[in-house]
Design a binder for these strands. Structure first.
Lengths: 333, 333
DNA sequence: GTGAAAGCGCTAACAC
DNA sequence: GTGTTAGCGCTTTCAC
């Protein structure tokens, strides 16, 4: 910037005014400064600017795994909002590992993220998060909450959605329904299991531990699934607790050559769910809206909004495609 | 840092040594400085550090769309390499818009990205990219090249893969094969069409413009597809040029209630391709390896490696699942 | 082993 | 409208 000032024969501050388009500069001066800038290929040093202003106009996003379609759609929505408002986006996957998650949040925060959107991994230390917020890094939690932390939260209606999906199967004659969800430590897994249990209870059906699997869908051994499917009193329908489990189960059922396919409802929609035959009935979430809202909330905080924290529950939507309407044993009689 | 120095009764420089673990500090001094750091909750200001050092230990990633499973898997691989080596990752989707892409690259570069992994949108100005590289921002191109630019490149074996997939259909008796690929301006689309044409030629089959659609899979009207499927001499098999087209076509075929399904080979694998019935035969790419290699190449450049630029072609792999082995009319006779 | 001083490139505050 | 001064918080250089 000094070079430009020298070349244009003006002061440093005048160049700054031109570069930032702030304050009054005579047309004549502006032209000569502009010429010097172009000629020298000058570009403002953002590091210095950041140091001076104490902000990098950057936000962070920490999710379980960008490669999961739920999170990748959410990511895209956050990106779009950030870019629109002139912010850059730092992103990283926590792999559901609390220490990795913490390392990421710390480095984002210390490298100047003005705020972070976080899907907190199980076992993340709330005190640590509280400290980050106190240090000036706003947080918005998505997908899972961290109770007691002063931050906005955007969650899906997990209990209600799972209840609706399960009730749908019951309404189609199923009374023996299995549930496969993520590990017990994952917030959404237990929420959705709760919804599943509530639906059973409302219908006067007994819930049976042998019909519930809570395990990481990628790592759960095939036997775990077979144990449920081949139980003495086997299920006639399945509720999958997330899109990873839906895919895992559908693949497993195909490999078994299972005929007829049991009734099936998946929580969270997934690509090609509509192309399978029968189409897969799902309780759809809205990851794009979740991402957009989270980003908007965060940027509002970053801009200084002091309104009370919002805790949004996004509704789910039952999409009927066939697999949830297969007749259960009741209907067959 | 000044506060810490004052609290510990040492000089600023000593605190700096402790914080960075560089140089010799007596055990005693170290302990007292550490105590002061903990007590004051001191955290190094990265802005100042960046200004001084001229680097932010950050790389950028600019792809067409993170929500596309091909790119989201690639993104995850880049993330992992970056984190391993202590780099942060800025990411954004170009939406295949050259001006958006340029804006993103500029802001990444000026905010201190040491390098950028870029899937160049069609129409991106090569001179602009050359300028960025000259300004010290290394580049690695993934998925598509930018000829004449001094940068490493990691591409898939598009021509060979498409040729193999098409030849596979021909070997199963098809001699009337349609091709649906992305817009002509997309590098991979024309590459894959070339492979498709080569396979036809090698088999002595005539290529027919009426059997080739090059259009954005999301926006192509249904009539465009029907025109091909209902041509006077309709195809008995289809090659889809990317995963978006595979999904679009399979959905369209299901909606039409097309029976029997034509022979089908997709370029790029996609989730549930194996669960559909028949399973979808694909020419699989390896986005994780593409991302990992690109990140490793970039970080090597950032570290100062001056070796000649590498131009890697990742092999594709034909995965046979059923849809590509449906008999064509030859076999039916 | 430790410290003092200079300066990275910019912007905020206040003259002129 | 334009210029001068100070300083953001750190690292580098060199002296002790």
């Amino acid at each position: 910037m000094g070079d430009v000032a020298a070349a244009a024969g003006v002061s440093l501050k005048t160049v700054s005014r031109v570069v930032n388009g702030v304050g009054y500069v005579s047309a004549e001066t502006l032209a000569s400064v502009q010429a010097a800038i172009d000629q020298l290929g000058f570009r403002r040093n953002e590091f210095a600017r950041q140091l001076r202003q104490g902000t990098a106009a950057t936000i962070g996003l920490v999710l379980e795994d960008v490669a999961d379609p739920f999170y990748s759609v959410l990511t895209r929505a956050v990106e779009d909002v950030a870019l629109e408002q002139g912010y850059l986006l730092l992103s990283a996957s926590s792999a559901e590992d609390p220490s990795r998650s913490r390392r990421i949040v710390e480095s984002f925060s210390s490298r100047g993220a003005d705020g972070i959107i976080l899907a907190p991994a199980r076992g993340t230390d709330p005190e640590f998060l509280r400290g980050e917020i106190a240090a000036g890094c706003s947080m918005v939690f998505v997908d899972r909450p961290v109770p007691g932390i002063p931050a906005d939260t955007v969650l899906a209606e997990n209990v209600g959605g799972a209840r609706e999906g399960t009730a749908h199967l019951i309404a189609h004659g199923h009374h023996r329904i299995a549930f496969f969800g993520d590990q017990e430590s994952v917030y959404t897994a237990t929420e959705r299991r709760t919804g599943y249990c509530e639906a059973l209870e409302e219908a006067g059906l007994e819930s049976d531990e042998a019909m519930m699997v809570l395990a990481a869908p990628r790592e759960a051994p095939a036997e775990l699934i077979d144990d449920v499917l081949e139980a003495a009193d086997p299920p006639t329908a399945i509720v999958a607790g997330n899109n990873r489990w839906s895919v895992r189960l559908l693949r497993h059922l195909k490999e078994r050559g299972q005929r007829p396919l049991p009734g099936f409802v998946g929580f969270d929609d997934f690509e090609l769910g509509d192309v399978l035959d029968p189409g897969i009935t799902v309780v759809a979430q809205d990851p794009a809206t979740m991402g957009r809202l989270a980003a908007e909330l965060l940027l509002r905080r970053v801009a200084g909004d002091e309104a009370p924290h919002e805790h949004i529950r996004l509704p789910t939507r039952l999409i009927v495609r066939g697999s949830g309407e297969l007749p259960g044993p009741f209907a067959e009689r």
